[in-house]
Amino acid sequence: MEHANPTFEFLGMTGNWSNILMLAVTSLIVFLIAFLSTRNLKMKPTGMQNFMEWIMDFVKGIIKSNFDWQTGGRFHVLGITFLMFIAVANVLGLPFSISYDGVLWWKSPTADPTVTMTLAVMVIILTHYYGIKMKGMKGYAVDTYLKPMPFLFPLKIIEEFANTLTLGLRLYGNIYAGEVLLGLIAGLATGYGALGFVGAIIPAMAWQGFSLFIGGIQAFIFVMLTMVYMSHKVSADH
């Protein structure tokens, strides 16, 4: 049950083939879903176009609960891509995991802290970028670090790091924990004979269903928090 990672070295940097593979698979699946369901767009939507439009409206709703649409509209694409990317990534590790020769290949890419923290840091950097872009350097500095009270400045600094960490690690923790428990149940199913297999069926199904739910919820939370942080930096009245 000891899982190693297929790491490699390139230009003095470490990489994990498993992560790269799964990121590629996730991207491919998201791309295919979005691409195929937006072929042959119609004024009267049918089938998958309805689904995609529902996702767009869903993200639009998230954005509208934080900004006015005038400001928030530019984050629409980011939000939709995040939602679908993370949801698909979360779900990928659910049906099975593949390990070969003690090396784990197939899992959720979001069950790796490097991936989730990268996304989180990217979000936080984007919030700062848009804060500066839309308010100017001075407005950004004052609004972000000196409001509501100047003496809260140290807390504001900590908040930025805390936001980053919670955003990334919440996602990682949820998905990783889900996979660990699935791994344990799978171990029960395979390691203890027929009785173990029978005993594992119901917990496995229950946990997979729950993980599916968690995967969706976490994707929603990630997008929601992205927009909340973004609105804190961008909107004048926060």
């Binding site: 940097m13 470490t14 990489g15 790269i20 691409f35 369901s37 694409v77 891509t81 990268t118």
Partner: peptide, 23 residues
């Protein structure tokens, strides 16, 4: 895993740009 960071950014941004264009 420094390369994973770049891989994540690469895949995500590529996906976002492509999807913005085609979807």
């Amino acid at each position: 895993n420094t390369l994973d960071i770049f891989a994540t950014l690469f895949f995500f941004i590529l996906l976002m740009v492509l999807l913005k264009k085609v979807a």
